[in-house]
Design a protein around this nucleic acid. Structure first.
Length: 488
RNA sequence: CUAGGCGUAGCUUAAUAUGGUAGAGCACUGCACUUGGACUGCAGUGGGUGUAGGUUCGACUCCUACCGCUUAGACCA
């Protein structure tokens, strides 16, 4: 097997690429910047999707689907919005192919030019708000709480599997409200869902915060974010929730009649997380042996491996364990492949990040035990068959907690408070991670700091306490610290 | 998009300074033998060197263009 993985210390980027490929998550495709998500990778995405989907539904959202194509004219209706995406749009100009009269193959039929070009959606605000105009006429139609699961295209020039690809999968929620307060509340509700999902399911601790004007979504009044930290100390924006004000309502003329019979523009939000979460999952937990998955998102939570190969006696025990685990909602796989040796299977499931492995051999059965191994700590021990179901269930919980704690401790160690420019530079350069520092609140300073250090303001944490201080660069007064980091 | 680096079998790679007509390991197939951490042996399958041109008697090797990957920027989720 040539499955070895480049170590993190040797080359973090290469390590990441190795994990993604060798754990069977995704491959490069024939199309530049686009990936093929493989079955195992997609199974994880499905877990992410299903969980989030149920959380959205619990909070009153419903799913719908809007077109992949957006008329070019729509994008120009909200000036800031179009500016944010103009440089990375795929444009459909024709609708027909024909045989090449000069030879083999096909060419674009020049007679099939579209009257109005279509943009492959980079995000759907415009097409959705154009639709909402028809759906909203009265306060009785509000709030409108819609989400869609879709693919979008942003013509990225520099790509990395899951982290940034030209096409990616995501969910985008688009809501309309009667009042500003309600819309702001919506963005915060979603932010909480994202944070809860990240921490409780992905086991990735996140900072909830507000983006600076400079980092804000094009067309938003306010952008809220959850920021995670990867093992190389870089920050990863893992989800965003935008308060859009009345910008899109005005651009698309979406008004409603109030109870007082007055015409008002509606208030909007939009929010999304993407397959980038897959990248976060890999980068937050995995090690040099492969993927490490939190049990709650693992497509296979427990794998049972017969030693050295299946036989009637082992099968019977394995099937019994499987049935009991399945009954309590644990996903189990019994690997009966006779061609592969146990050692190979051990390595393979470690590569794939399966949280728990149970090995059953003749010697174990004579003693009424099995061997249990956990992926996160690499611990291995024997456990009586009696009560194995409860033990495994409990263990999965411990693993979930332990993975989170490990990531939490890492973030804690890599969060530094500094008060001088010199310390700031040192922290960013040598230690990495989040650096909490005072900032004078201007975009100019923010941009300057980025030029000098590559660090950007990830967010102003929602729970950041007020504290008088001086901007690390300009010395101007500041009322609270913001989080800086180098980011993906 | 800019600047480097790299493209030889599914993967890792040899042959490239000095052009001479692609060789191996892993994977894969078959058989045998094994089996408590990526077995072993034997026998096979598989590439014409990212693509298109050019130079040459002859190109993996030299030249040009393009494509892709990658690293670092600019931009962005």
């Amino acid at each position: 097997m040539s499955k070895e993985i480049t170590s993190r210390s040797e080359d973090y980027s290469k390590w990441y690429n190795d994990i993604v490929r060798k754990a069977g998550l995704a491959d490069h495709s024939a199309v530049r910047g686009c990936m093929v998500i493989k079955p195992y990778g997609f199974a994880i995405w499905e877990k992410i999707r299903d969980q989030l989907d149920s959380m959205f539904k619990e909070t009153g959202h419903v799913n719908a689907y809007f077109p992949l194509f957006i008329p070019k004219s729509f994008l120009s209706k909200e000036a800031e919005h179009v500016e944010g995406f103009a440089k990375e749009c795929a444009v459909v100009t024709h609708h027909r192919l024909m045989n090449d009269p000069n030879g083999k193959g096909v060419i674009v039929d020049p007679d099939a030019k579209l009257e109005e070009e279509l943009i492959v959606r980079p995000t759907s605000e415009t097409i959705i708000w154009n639709t909402y105009r028809d759906w909203i006429s009265s306060y009785r139609d509000l709030p409108l709480l819609i989400n869609q699961w879709a693919n979008v295209v942003r013509w990225e020039l520099r790509t990395k599997l899951f982290m940034r690809t030209a096409e990616f999968l995501w969910q985008e929620g688009h809501t309309a409200h009667a009042t500003k307060d309600e819309a702001v509340q919506e963005t915060l509700t979603i932010l909480d869902i994202y944070a809860k999902f990240a921490e409780e399911y992905m086991a990735v601790p996140v900072v909830k915060g507000i983006k600076t004007a400079n980092e804000r979504f094009a067309g938003a009044e306010e952008t809220y974010t959850i920021e995670a930290m990867m093992q190389d100390g870089k920050a990863l924006q893992s989800g965003t929730s935008h308060f859009l004000g009345q910008n899109f309502a005005k651009a698309f003329d979406v008004k409603y009649l109030t109870q007082q019979n007055k015409q008002e523009y509606v208030w909007a939000t939009s929010w999304g997380v993407s397959t980038r979460l897959m990248g976060a999952l890999v980068m937050a937990h995995s090690d040099d042996e492969g993927l490490v998955l939190p049990p709650k998102l693992a497509p296979i939570q427990v794998v049972i491996i017969p030693i050295p190969k299946p036989n009637e006696q082992i099968d019977a025990v394995a099937e019994d364990i499987m049935a009991k685990l399945k009954a309590v909602g644990v996903t189990v796989k019994y690997d009966t492949d006779k061609k592969k040796r146990p050692g190979f299977k051990f390595a393979d499931y470690e590569m794939k990040g399966v949280p728990v492995r149970i090995a059953i051999g003749k010697r174990d059965l004579e003693k009424g035990v099995v061997e249990v191994a956990r992926r996160d700590t690499k611990e291995k021990y024997t456990e009586p068959l009696e009560g194995i179901t409860d033990h495994i269930q409990e263990l999965l919980g411990h693993i979930q907690d332990n993975i989170f704690k490990k990531a939490y401790d890492f973030r804690k160690e890599h969060t530094t408070e500094v008060d001088t420019w010199e310390d700031f530079q040192k922290a960013i350069e040598n230690k990495g991670g989040f650096v909490a520092a005072h900032w004078d609140g201007t975009t100019e300073t923010e941009v300057k700091i980025k030029e000098l250090t590559k660090a950007t303001i990830r967010c102003i944490a929602l729970d950041q306490e007020e504290e008088a201080g001086k901007c690390i660069l300009t010395g101007k007064p500041s009322s609270k610290r913001v989080l800086f980091a180098k980011a993906y």
